[in-house]
Design a protein around this nucleic acid. Structure first.
Lengths: 197, 197
DNA sequence: ATATTGCTTTATTGATCGTTCCAATTAGAG
DNA sequence: CTCTAATTGGAACGATCAATAAAGCAATAT
């Protein structure tokens, strides 16, 4: 019964994500977003209420997309344990391709805003826990299949792997020799049986 | 030959550090700094040239202080390997006390600014490498003393330990159960011989 | 055909940003 | 005491911040 929007919402979110990812929430101005999305301020505010509202939806989009990728990767492995090895193989490749070292939007946002913003901290912690739970259930499957010794603690290992991922996100911002990721992953996966890289 | 400043430079740096630490560089306004330091804008700019100049000196102060702490800790151990275990014991205790989860100023700044600011990225990377080198030389001492098997790669392990530290900085921003740190450290130090926690 | 609804556009809002200016002040040097 | 030089307090700078007002426009429903 009224005029339909001319822009594609997913497209706008993608463009906004690029900017937020590179310069953070505080470091991104509405002017930056207007330039990146080609929307006028009025349209932006009509669609997302505020800079923060847009950011929140960007975060949600990113989380949804990331969780899908992890779930797919972990389900495609020949065996549960092999899936985890495959994940880190892919993770290492992806992180090398990120030449400007922008890292992970969730981790970046966590460190930028979590001390002062409870809503964002909870949202991101929730996301990180979901990823961790995927690793945990994969490790439990590995245990059920006899791939992983029964005396190992899947929850502790999952937390440990997450910490390794986060650490490598920081490592990537130092723009290290790509070989460094391989060495870190080697040590990270020493806890697990299976082929070495 | 002229009027001496009334404020204590170290004191001002400490106050400014608290603010930058909690809210980041971009998230901190000069007004915030004026309130925290009780200096008027004129005095602040007279002493530090710019908001960025003040931040740079804060970073340097933090780096110097941190490097001292790590060096002391690593040199006080009964043996090189024990020193590393001790470090992580202390690290775990410190991180639990940081209840608001502000983490490490260097890591926070790295993720906030490294993509856009080469000078800061180089400065912080340099600092991180210095810490890493302390671990590396401690590991080599452990090897010389026969504490650490000769087939281990001290450089790779040092990088791995650094990644663990960074990962736990992110972990701390999720405000986890303190026990989580212990479990992560257990897995982290599995690579090394010596007493388990 | 017309009224209604909501998107687009442009200009602009008050607030805050980092920074500078300046007069008053305070010390040491001659 | 006087001159010099730097600090101090505070007002003020232009620029930019996030957000909005208002007018025009487009599409549907009646």
């Amino acid at each position: 019964m009224a005029r339909p929007a001319e822009f594609d919402r997913r497209d706008v979110l993608e463009k906004a994500m690029e900017v937020f990812w590179r310069t953070g929430f505080t470091g991104t101005s509405v002017t930056d977003l207007v330039k990146a999305t080609n929307l006028k301020p009025g349209s932006l505010y009509g669609a997302f209420q505020s800079k923060r509202g847009l950011f929140m939806e960007v975060i949600d989009t990113y989380a949804h997309c990331s969780l899908d990728r992890v779930a797919t990767c972990l389900s495609e492995g020949e065996t549960p344990l092999q899936a985890i090895h495959d994940f880190f193989e892919r993770f290492s490749n992806d992180i090398v391709l990120d030449e400007i070292g922008r890292g992970c939007l969730m981790v970046n946002t966590m460190l930028e805003l979590a001390t002062e913003d409870d809503e964002i901290r909870h949202k991101i912690t929730d996301y990180l826990l979901q990823v961790e739970n995927m690793f945990c259930s994969t490790l439990k499957k590995a245990q059920d299949a006899g791939e992983l010794p029964a005396d190992k603690d899947p929850e502790a290992i999952a937390k440990f792997l997450m910490t390794g991922i986060w650490g490598m996100r920081v490592l990537s911002s130092t723009r290290p020799d790509p070989q460094a990721y391989k060495e870190v992953i080697n040590n990270l996966l020493i806890t697990l049986p299976g082929r070495q890289h």
